[in-house]
Each structure stands twice: as C-alpha cells, then as structure tokens.
Design a protein around this nucleic acid. Structure first.
Lengths: 105, 105
DNA sequence: GAAAAATGTAAGCTGAAGCTTACCAAGCTT
DNA sequence: AAGCTTGGTAAGCTTCAGCTTACATTTTTC
C-alpha cells in the first residue's frame, strides 16, 4: 500500500470535496462535477487520482460511471494514524516520566 | 482547523518520515536532519510546514529547538477520517439495501 | 568578547500538480 | 444509423512545492 498516493490524494481540497459528496452514496461524474467550480475533465482527473490511491472505486452503468468510496484506502490511513497516535502517546508518557524523575524544568 | 494544511503536510514523504522519527520521542533539528538525504535548511522548512499544520510543536532549549509530535493535529485528521468512515459504512449499507429491494443487478 | 554551534530565513531554480480546451470512444434513443 | 449523452485522454500553460546555497541570529563556551 502506497501511503504516498493516499495522502497526496487527500491533500487536495477538490478531491476531499468529492469524497464528502460520495460519503452520502455513489454518484456519476456529471453529478459530481456539477457543483464544482471547474471543468468536467478536471473532475475526471481528480477521480483518477482518487481511484489510483484506492480511495474510490468505479463501476460502469451504461454510459455512466458510478463512483463510490472504497473503504480500503480509508482503512489504510486510519491504520497509519492509529500507530502514530499510540506511539506518540507512549513517547509523551515516557518523556513526562523522564522529566519528572530527572531534571525538572 | 485547516484540513488543507494538515493533509498537505502529511502528503510529503519526508515530513511523514520526520513524524515517524518523532513518534519515538522529541528530537532537535540536527538529529532529525542527520539520516535524511537533504540539506538541513530543507528539513527546517519541512518542520515549519508541520508546525503550521499543528502536527508538531517546538520548544527552545539553549541553541537547540526540540520538536515533538502535537497530538491535536493528528486528532483532527482522525476525526475527519472517522466521520468519513462511518458515513461511508451507512451509505454502503443503504445502497446494498436499495439494490436488494429494488432492481437486482 | 571572540569563536563555534544550532537553526531560521531569503533568493533562485526545477519539476510536477492542476486547470483548460480539444478530441475521441462508447452506449442510448429515436 | 444518425445524433445525443457521458466521460476518459492528450497537449499545453501556469503556478507552486521542495531543494540548494548563502546569510543572519542567538546562545554557549573558552
């Protein structure tokens, strides 16, 4: 799993807006592009980035492409954050203990 | 809270590497820069981005600046992801229900 | 107080991300 | 089958992120 792709995908506000729309359920490209202040091809490009990152998946339905959130990508980010969070808590506790024991600031 | 800054900060592999080092406890700039394949000023710039995003905090100690993980930034990202996750689960369940009830694919 | 250590900042370069327009492909509709 | 709808892709432009070198600043040390 490439964290680089996932975080880079999440770094763009337009792509996060797309995800927030898809939060409520699947949608096709035209619907997704409608409220956004940019051209439809731009939205297609954003969707490709999200798709490559594993954050959304696509299913053809006639001429339409129905996009939906792919939980795998989100799970990966959650895992990374959880590890970071737990270790940071441990390090924080250890640091506090070290300070309380040794040199008081 | 500016998600833009946080996600943009996390999008860079060097900055994630810095966070993974800080996971194990606070460190100064020289120590953080040592294993990285770039100049020390570059690392300083990365630390500024992380700091602006609220992901790390800094404390002066003599001429040294001790950087440490700031849990607030991480918490913000976790919150965003959790909301996304929960809503995506609901939407997924609703979609499955809709399909099972109405037109079977 | 002069030299050294640690670090932030400015200026400049390079590559890549994001947008647009134009074009192409595939499926409905009549 | 001719035309409309939907949407992916290519080429080109512009802006910005990230790196480097050079310089300024602050605190410690001798």
């Amino acid at each position: 799993m490439a964290y680089d792709e996932v975080f880079l995908a999440l770094a763009d506000p337009t792509r996060r807006a797309l995800l927030e729309t898809l939060r409520r359920g699947p949608a096709n490209v035209k619907t997704l592009a409608a409220p956004l202040p940019m051209s439809r091809p731009a939205v297609s490009q954003h969707l490709k980035v999200l798709s490559d990152a594993g954050l959304v998946m696509c299913e053809a339905e006639g001429t339409k492409r129905i996009y939906a959130i792919d939980k795998e990508g989100l799970a990966a980010v959650r895992g990374w954050l959880d590890t970071m969070w737990d270790d940071a808590l441990d390090a924080f506790a250890a640091e506090a203990h070290r300070r309380a024991k040794g040199k008081l600031p």
